[in-house]
């Protein structure tokens, strides 16, 4: 395959751009503008097309497509690759749903359960995140002044340059049986044995909401900031109570920002690996951990790819649903 693919790539890049140029000519008619090559000169054109072409094809599109293709193949020893058994199959996906053939349950209770829990918990974490971040974003956009605002942005950004693993580690210290919370609880006499925050997944949810705060705050902030403060003043003049103003004036306006923040936080939460590995209870896995295990414990990459693709599809469906619910277009949120 590689021998076919490599020389095809530059051809494909050239064809795509040629097709785009042809489409442009057809749509606009005889154009007075200079073409891409005349505008940029040979050297720059080669750099621009080369870099973008390689990025899109070799890094973004082809690997994803290949992963999908790979997920439809059985896992075979090298000697049998390309042989008669190397045919497309749905076996990897049917494993996710129905489990091993002949399973008494009739479906893959364990993995489907983890999958469902991952999605539901991610939605929960996303909503929690929104609830935490909305007041802060509103404060930054409409109340804080220049210097205060800059300080807040700085204070928000700094913690997020700390390694994801270490951030999770910090929560582990906080929630461990000899951690700060347990020490406080024990000392106050509220409990008489340490609470296992890790097993009950409280630590995990706290750590996950913490991990992507920034990605919720900034889209919200941008959306609210763009809003005319007079609208709020007007609503207040009309005697609207504060919750009414937020629910029916600010939030509808900030819809694209809310959608952007929610989709991003959801995607990252559902796809998180570090926090679940560090903070997850020993008995409950995150779906990415199952994928990880297929790769590094069972060494079944085909099955792992199928699971990964299933996760990607779930994420895409979630985004579509959110866009529908909020009635915003993809262009609006991807700014």
């Amino acid at each position: 395959m590689s021998r076919f693919l490599l020389p095809l790539i530059p051809v494909a890049v050239a064809l795509i751009f040629w097709g785009m140029a042809a489409a442009e000519r057809r749509a606009v008619g005889n154009v007075a503008h200079l073409g891409f090559f005349r505008r940029n000169g040979a050297a720059l054109s080669v750099y621009l097309l080369g870099a973008v072409g390689l990025w899109i094809l070799l890094l973004i599109v082809l690997p994803q497509l290949y992963m999908v293709e790979f997920s439809f193949r059985p896992r075979l020893p090298p000697s049998e690759m390309g042989g008669p058994k190397d045919a497309y199959t749905l076996a990897n996906y049917s494993y996710l749903i129905f489990g091993r053939p002949g399973d008494p349950e009739g479906y893959n209770k364990l993995h489907l359960g983890i999958f469902l829990r991952t999605i539901v918990a991610s939605i929960f974490v996303t909503m929690l995140n929104f609830a935490i971040c909305y007041p802060i974003a509103f404060f930054m956009a409409k109340v804080a002044k220049g210097g205060q605002m800059r300080l807040m942005v700085l204070a928000l950004i700094v913690p997020f340059w700390v390694n994801e693993i270490l951030r999770a580690f910090a929560f582990r210290i906080l929630f461990s049986s000899s951690g700060v919370f347990n020490t406080l609880l024990l000392a106050s006499g509220l409990v008489d044995a340490p609470v296992d925050f890790l097993r009950s997944d409280i630590a995990l949810y706290a750590g996950l909401s913490y991990a992507y705060l920034l990605l919720m705050i900034f889209p919200l902030y941008n959306a609210i900031e763009a809003m005319d403060s007079n609208q709020i003043e007007a609503a207040r003049d009309l005697g609207a109570p504060w919750w009414h103003i937020h629910l029916f004036v600010v939030m509808p306006y900030a819809k694209p920002g809310i959608a952007a923040g929610c989709t991003m936080v959801f995607m990252l939460t559902a796809g998180a690996l570090a926090a679940p590995q560090v903070l997850g209870g020993p008995s409950s896995l995150w779906f990415t951990q199952v994928v990880y295990n297929w790769f590094y414990q069972a060494f079944n990459w085909n099955l792992g790819a199928a699971y990964a693709f299933a996760l990607l599809i779930a994420c895409i469906i979630f985004v579509m649903v959110v866009l529908r619910l909020f009635k915003v277009s993809l262009g609006e949120i991807a700014r």
């Binding site: 973004i60 690997p63 992963m67 790979f70």
Partner: peptide, 30 residues
């Protein structure tokens, strides 16, 4: 070309919306 801009944008920002796990897996496989 402005009509291709939306699609282009979608393609190049899609890695930001793809779980990192999947990017890692697909890169290695490919």
């Amino acid at each position: 070309y402005w009509r291709a801009r939306g699609l282009y944008y979608l393609v190049v920002v899609s890695p930001l919306l793809t779980p990192g796990v999947i990017i890692g897996i697909s890169t290695v496989l490919f």
